[in-house]
Amino acid sequence: MSTDTAVSTRTSTRSLLSARGLHVTFPGRRGAPPARAVDGVDLDIGAGEIVALVGESGCGKTTLARSLLGLVRPTSGTISFDGKPLAYSSGALKAYRKRAQLVLQDPSGSLNPRHTVYDAVAEGLRIHGYAGDEREAVAGALARAGLRPPERFFLRYPHELSGGQRQRVVIAGALVLEPELIVADEPVASLDASVRGEILALLLRLRDELGLSALVVTHDLGLAWNIADRVAVMYLGRVVETGPVESVLTAPQHPYTQALLSVLPESGSAPVVLTGEPPDPSRIPSGCRFHARCQVLASGAAAAVADLCRGESLPVLDGGGARAVACHWVTREPTG
């Protein structure tokens, strides 16, 4: 885990990836209202910084991650990389994807079972017309991903590897293009507990050795605790709490973050069971989007701001490194 000082140093560096006012809306099916999967997000990822994007299934975090990579075009809002707006022509996206790479959660599904490890890692080089020594580049990427000696893996097929080795091959396939940013979607969700720590340690080492930035998408706050410099907690299309990971996870302010943390074994508190319906991006409620399931509002502790919770929308949180929370109960003094 990074110290507060280290976090402060990293988050003060230049912003590598920046999103402002991002919305992604999908048409509803059979006359249903449109689904607002991402409903107003500002987010920055600094050079050499690891940001964890956390939230339960259906909150919009994977859609947000894919839009940041140019895989899903936003309905509105802007995305900038290294200070330049993201363009959506085929040539511009191809160039961008050399600098920003996706690592998926299921290495078995990411790797073609008919391709050797060498071909799997070399695929990106061939797509981008790499003019250097392909064999040397593939060997270097495999070595950086922890598969040594790399030549021993060249002619192996995915079914001949362990789950952890397959995930390392997927990471090597991203590293071979020497990207500046990796977006890892649940990078250890399909791995055994004994291997998870190895992959997380690898991502941290890559950040330290290569200056690599990363957005790690996860539902696991324990993972965020172990790897991230900063965390953004997402609920129903919007970030509801953000800040340095130690600050947010040791003293969560938003009731949703508190509920997510309560189920961790080391939390020391009784698990919070959320009531109400799971998030539905086609039916975002008025006011605070969490109010229908909020345990604080249900307990009566937030009675003084209940009308605000149910009727007054909250602003989009700043995307930078400052601690911020979107909650009437936290941000307004109770009256009466």
Rank of each mutant, 00 (worst) to 15 (best):
L17Q: 10
L68V: 04
G320M: 09
G60M: 01
A189N: 05
L125E: 09
F153W: 09
E186G: 02
A322P: 02
P265I: 08
G211S: 14
A37W: 04
G124D: 09
G243P: 11
R196K: 09
S18K: 13
V195L: 14
G300M: 11
A120T: 15
T78E: 13
L86G: 02
E134Y: 07
L261H: 05
P33A: 05
V7Y: 03
A32L: 01
G46V: 12
G268C: 04
V24S: 00
N112G: 15
T9V: 11
I50G: 02
K61P: 03
D185F: 08
P187C: 13
A189Y: 11
Q167C: 09
R238F: 00
V296P: 00
V170K: 14
V316L: 01
L175F: 12
V138C: 05
T25M: 01
N226G: 15
D208G: 07
L142P: 09
I127E: 03
V188A: 10
L212H: 08
A120H: 13
H159D: 12
I227E: 07
P265G: 04
T275D: 12
L221F: 14
A324L: 11
R310F: 04
R36Q: 14
H128D: 06
K61H: 05
T63F: 00
G46Q: 12
A270M: 01
L142M: 13
A324P: 10
